[in-house]
Nucleic acid binder design. Structure first.
Lengths: 141, 141
DNA sequence: GCACATTTTTAGAACAATTCTAATTATCAC
DNA sequence: GTGATAATTAGAATTGTTCTAAAAATGTGC
């Protein structure tokens, strides 16, 4: 069974094409940066990392690319309180744990049945297309 | 059994005092505005509503008061994606449902055992002080 | 009740993250 | 290649919020 828990650089071209979009170097490098170090970087951090490969890229383009990748559902945008949006190529159903000490963010895999149980608390008439679960606290590692 | 699902204007004075803070008219009116119409207003919306009672209040004060009330745990701050922070006097454990059609936010009461189950997905070494659950979708009403 | 230290409020400036604008550049289809 | 479309770019603009410094209000000791 192929691993579908993240998109790959190869599948990105196809996914973009499926939405009528082009696989530009900027989009590919932004995506590769997210795959390479999965520490939920902000747009600014992605910008800094992408620059070493594409020194003339602009911050606006980084925002555009990230937005495109989110639209194509190969990347998830993660928000925590009012902090800057962070980006994550993990497509598995998962929650986020924000470590208050280090400021880092960790993925927490969610069993599908738990997601079902959570959705089951919605009263009749409510139809959720997405559920977000976020933890705040301390982690050992 | 007294209802502890929200603080009351009367208990506010005590709660503030417990933190060494004063019960100013601005703080009281901001809190009353939140109690009166529980539609998860933004700071701007609170500002507009408070003005009818305290016409000379400033937006900075509204932000200060809201921050104080959140610190004292009589009000919860609610964030959804990058939208403005919204405020909610419901102290019961609850999730938020964001209706994509209307832009409105509804409280969804959470059974304590579900919160336990959700916290139980955390690997050893993770200690969550808070869990946030947010739904996005459509609701009938 | 009065001084005084402390809190609180205030207006406006500053700030951070993001989005917009309009011009330029790249790319695909023919 | 040419023309239409898509994407990138730099910088300005916007939004929501926080900061700053001064003025006003308040509780406390006398």
């Amino acid at each position: 069974m192929p691993d579908t828990s993240t998109a790959t650089p190869a599948s990105l071209t196809q996914t973009l094409a499926d939405s009528g979009l082009r696989a530009t170097p900027q989009r590919e490098v932004v995506f590769n940066v997210l795959l390479k170090k999965r520490d939920h970087p902000t747009a600014d951090e992605v910008f800094a990392r992408v620059k070493s490969e594409l020194p003339t890229i602009s911050l606006a383009t980084v925002y555009n690319c990230l937005e495109t990748l989110v639209q194509c559902r190969v990347v998830r945008a993660v928000n925590f309180e009012r902090g800057p949006t962070r980006y994550c190529p993990n497509l598995r159903p998962h929650a986020h744990f924000h470590d208050e000490q280090s400021g880092s963010t960790h993925d927490i895999d969610l069993p599908p049945e738990l997601l079902e149980q959570v959705k089951a608390v919605l009263p009749p008439g409510y139809d959720a297309s997405a559920v977000e679960i976020t933890f705040r606290g301390r982690s050992a590692s």
